[in-house]
Design a protein around this nucleic acid. Sequence first.
DNA 1: ATGCCGTGGAAACCACGA
Length: 258
Amino acid sequence: MKIATYNVNGVNGRLPVLLRWLKESAPDVVCLQELKAPQEKFPLQAITDAGYNAIWYGQKSWNGVAILAKGMEIHETRRGLPGDPEDLHSRYIEAAINGMVIGCLYLPNGNPAPGPKFDYKLAWFKRLTAYSSKLLKKDIPVILTGDFNVIPTEQDAKKPENWVRDALFFPESRDAYKKLVAKGWTDALRKLYPDEKIYTFWDYFRNAFARDSGIRIDHFLLSHHFDKRLVAGGVDREVRSWEKTSDHAPVWIEVKDR
DNA sequence: ATGCCGTGGAAACCACGA
């Protein structure tokens, strides 16, 4: 089963690119972030016509997450991250699909840092870490994936020195990611390619993609149930070169069915 | 490298992103 994550940066503006990628890459499950569309403006018809069921958690202008599944039922298990009833951002949605739980997340960016937005990022991280422990305790196969807005290590940036004053690479952000993973998760792409440079995002400006000046911020965290089930993974880099594309590229893994 | 580009929504510019 192929599972992908893709920060589309506007699901409606990105629809031609999204549909082309769905057709060419044919993932079984897709987690989308940054829909930038209210609940009623999700392009359900086009997604359905492409062969996918969908659940989504929209929001006007910003954020927004969705889970798509091809020919499989989606049982929604949660929308919104627990731990702060005043947090109304659409940044988390979760579903049971084909015997596993898949959490789709869009972690706050946190810039400018320091400041209230950075505080929100760290608070969100804490809530995610606490909740992730509860997921692991259920002892069922779980995947947490999406845009974590964290560059985990220097290996994950072409030019780490460019990011030292950025919330994505602040020590607090990296520590938070480390603490989350330490709860018992496996960073799937890093496990598959321990020594490679892997990027999932390239800025729109400064010709970043042509220079391959990228960062790795879209991740797959797997529960131990996948230790012997993870067979492949990668980044669909070519999508980043298409017309009217997102600044992120889709990332995917392939897991064996039990 | 201080958003240089891109998206969405409101207003003919602004907020936000990473």
